[in-house]
Design a protein around this nucleic acid. Structure first.
Lengths: 207, 207
DNA sequence: TCAGCATCTGGACAGTCGTCAAGATTACCT
DNA sequence: AGGTAATCTTGACGACTGTCCAGATGCTGA
């Protein structure tokens, strides 16, 4: 508690930039450690080791572990809630959108598997712990909106209104992705290809 | 290692029943602790406290923590892979099956939320750790088969063949359930009712 | 150049973890 | 009933955890 106020005093006392910048940087190291080890095995010393600093500095920039992690989760949000907007913007037909959506999901499955499992790990943590819950629900809502933009665009192309709610659409595609992630990390070949096909197959059925 | 062999010697030397029975009992306490605290915060002492024994006894019946947890996961399997078979057996029409399936999912969401979040926690752990992966994939496969039995029965009633693969069907319904679990544990009212409706709505679209 | 403040290091702390083993307790067999 | 093996308790160990702090280091402005 006293650490919190003193940290905030430092912020107001001096140039905010440097302080906030280092917080950002340390949060990045935290996400790196979390993605690699998972929530259960990530310690402050591990996080510090991913950064260029010693473990003590974390308590200079963050009041405690919870504040560091919640800050990291919020930072994490930025990278994962606009992923398919390019596909939506660039598609010129329903068919193109369908294929592009599937391909984009498959691509991020291939490239960012560690980060995705981190997301699911954090979301699951929020089922046990109150601390992240608000942020998790917020991010989840934004991800749902992201998927819904795809559905809506698809509906525009076909001229038919969507036949599911945003909630159901998101849940279905997210379930698909999660399943593919499990398959991929288990070393089963072709998980990404299958995901692309399944997504392209499911989209017309929901929109 | 030496603990493993000596444990197995004990098994063969004496009545297997008692030994296996206690393992079962301790695994039950482990599941209880895991469901309450989550994987990240479950210690052997916590597990022992849920049982009637002291923490030392766990190493008498299990070589180490990993063996206890994998054993618990396998035990866990039994309760969660036949949940909807009654609904399938008792339904006499597509409509009845549809409603029954949704109602059954909503019911277990209401009654067994802690156990379900444990399952997702363990499945997620397997994304980071090899130890449970085989068992998790096995359980997931059985859950998929369970859902597929519902789909097949529905297809029998309607006379139309399913329009999705077992993988896609399972992923979609599982995503729906997971989303409802998050909503419910976040305290949002009506999550179970909405799940029942969404499931009943999605089933005809996939089968 | 030097004082003063921001930043960072490294170690110490109390607590918890998984693991182990010596000894107490219990149950079973002759 | 007595002795032997199975079962359980208790306390200890080294390693690791989050947290805190005294002091080293670096930077800035006079």
């Amino acid at each position: 508690m006293s650490q919190v106020t003193s940290a905030q005093e430092r912020i107001s006392r001096r140039a905010v930039d440097k302080f906030a910048q280092r917080r950002e940087q340390l949060a990045g190291s935290a996400l790196q450690a979390l993605a690699e080890l998972g929530y259960a095995r990530t310690s402050l010393r591990e996080i510090a080791q991913k950064s260029d600093f010693s473990h003590g500095v974390l308590h200079y920039y963050f009041a405690d572990k919870v504040e560091l992690l919640t800050y990291s989760v919020r930072k994490f949000e930025d990278v994962c809630v606009t992923r398919y907007d390019d596909v939506v913007a660039e598609a010129t037909s329903a068919e193109e959108l369908k294929q592009g959506f599937g391909a984009a999901m498959a691509a991020t499955l291939r490239a960012d598997a560690a980060m995705h499992r981190l997301w699911y790990d954090l979301r699951n943590q929020s089922l046990f712990e109150e601390s992240f819950r608000t942020d998790v629900l917020d991010i989840d809502g934004q991800r749902q909106a992201m998927v819904w933009r795809v559905i809506q665009r698809y509906a525009e192309f076909t001229g038919q209104p969507p036949r599911v709610t945003p909630e159901v659409a998101y849940a279905a595609f997210d379930g698909l992705f999660q399943q593919a992630l499990l398959q991929r990390l288990a070393g089963r070949d072709g998980a990404a290809d299958r995901l692309a096909a399944d997504v392209a197959d499911l989209l017309p059925r929901l929109a």
